[in-house]
């Protein structure tokens, strides 16, 4: 049985950890990622015919390198290239949450969008047309309530399909201003020449235009030891009251 890797991304307070706990149960541990001072929980579980290893990325508002959290989450998606990235959205504040989903879609196409707190949203009079979101984003989109275990089967079904390659999503490309688009086109071939096509060139071009020097640092580290897996430092799992 193959073990697929799933990364869990999302804004803080979206119930990301609730979903993580629901899926992994007690088989989880916390680890330090690549020497950075950011804790990520990791857990294993099986669902249907497949085994999964799930990494709960730090909750962030974006995936630019504004903070150590954001850098860690971004580096994981770009460099570790998980089989599937689940983006957890809060149904009651979709606008800001979609912002993050769109950023993830620029980095990888193997994404399942998961609209959490759907029951809460219904209670508050928010109606969400999932098919429309799925159509506009170009990736599967599932509504769930992690705490009440609603929609988990549907979510995992899509995750398995994307992981196994049964469906390969074609995510929307964010249209930028003409000026930016021109510069991106200019840069893409140079990036492909320098870095190869292992990383999404459009995304890297945008980050470089953005002056994201943190990304360059990370790239440089990978280039120096391209085949060595990320070192992981285990630390004791402390009992905490604030997750």
């Amino acid at each position: 049985m193959r073990t697929y890797t799933i990364a869990l991304a999302g804004n803080p307070n979206t119930g990301k950890s609730t979903l993580f706990n629901t899926l992994t149960g007690l088989r989880q541990h916390t680890g330090n990622w690549a020497g950075k001072t950011v804790l990520m929980a990791e857990g294993e579980f099986t669902y249907g015919k497949s085994a999964f290893r799930m990494i709960d990325l730090p909750g962030t508002y974006s995936l630019y390198s504004n903070s150590a959290d954001e850098e860690v989450a971004r580096d994981y998606i770009i460099f570790e290239q998980p089989d599937v990235t689940i983006v957890v959205l809060d149904a009651t504040s979709l606008e800001r949450n979609l912002n993050l989903a769109l950023q993830v879609l620029e980095m990888t196409s193997r994404v399942v969008v998961c609209v959490n707190l759907i029951d809460e949203a219904k209670k508050r009079g928010v109606r969400i047309d999932l098919q429309m979101i799925s159509k506009r984003l170009g990736v599967p989109c599932v509504a769930i309530s992690a705490r009440n275990k609603i929609g988990i089967d549907a979510l995992m079904e899509q995750v398995e399909k994307v992981a196994s390659g049964e469906i390969s999503p074609e995510p929307v490309q964010i249209p930028y201003s003409k000026e930016i688009e021109e510069k991106v086109k200019e840069l893409q071939p140079i990036i492909a020449q320098t870095l190869g096509t292992r990383f999404p060139t459009r995304w890297i071009a945008l980050r470089l235009l953005d002056g994201d020097e943190g990304l360059l640092k990370s790239l440089r580290e990978r280039m120096q030891e391209p085949t060595v897996p990320v070192k992981r430092e285990r630390i004791g799992h402390e009992q905490t009251i604030c997750h």
């Binding site: 630019y64 504004n66 606008e95």
Partner: peptide, 11 residues
């Protein structure tokens, strides 16, 4: 700087 980015991210 960083705060500008954070504020933009937050909407």
């Amino acid at each position: 700087g960083v705060l500008r980015r954070r504020l933009l991210d937050l909407g």
